[in-house]
Design a protein around this nucleic acid. Sequence first.
DNA 1: CAGATAACCTGCGTGC
DNA 2: TGCACGCAGGTTATCT
Length: 259
Amino acid sequence: MPELPEVETVRRVLEKKVLGQTLLSYSLGTPTFYRRPDERFLRSLQGLRVLEISRRGKYLVFNFQSNRSLILHLGMSGRIHFAEDAPQIRAKFHFSKTVVCFQDVRRFGRVMESLPALGPEPLSDDFNADYLASVFKNKKAAVKSVLMDQRAVAGLGNIYATEALYRAQIRPRRKSCRVTFEEIQRIALSAKEVLREAVSCGGTTLPDESYLDPLDRAGSFQNQLKVYGKRICPLGHSVLRTQKMIAGRRAYYCPLCQK
DNA sequence: CAGATAACCTGCGTGC
DNA sequence: TGCACGCAGGTTATCT
């Protein structure tokens, strides 16, 4: 569930709450994540101070002294908070003054030692129409799946890829190699715009409230969604098409607004 | 090899 | 009431 804006919101809270503290110990839940964290690695971080908390795409990065880092990925249902008695806590990190709890109903979240290969940050200047054109070139895959490919650009998931393509007026199923440069410019700008707005809204909290920040605060970008989870286009009063694509992930688009 | 699909999990809503 | 089925913000292993 958490895409770039949600992870960034979590990061900002953590920065305020645990920056500068020392990791004293950790514990894993039973069961823990379906990919069990490497405990030898976790033990090696004990006693180190957190110098920086950053984000790369949808990954949270704790940078410790001695150039060591701890990477967290929230998967589909992961949450970070400080309530030690909550259910489904898969890992706890005891810092000097704060206990960071990683709760995760579906157990897809991950605790790891290093980042995988990722494309550029979508809000950086490295992500622009020229770059995107070079990625789209020669690819026959649906433009939406390329946008959700973290090696192409890091941080877009189903919600924000869907919303960016609506704003850019491009159908999600278009083969990426057949998107014109002018359209690619619109996609790059729309993606930045959607993500910037969503970050400033504190992310998207859908009705099930499975995303809340570490202080249990909801985001508000759900009020700005145009097509994700909707049935009718906000402009044309046209019924949105919704169809499966990409591993059963639903795509929403307006057949009138998007070409 | 690129691109599509299944698998990894749990919980909730729907319909029979 | 009970139960089978479908579906969910993601990633990755496995197919075709």
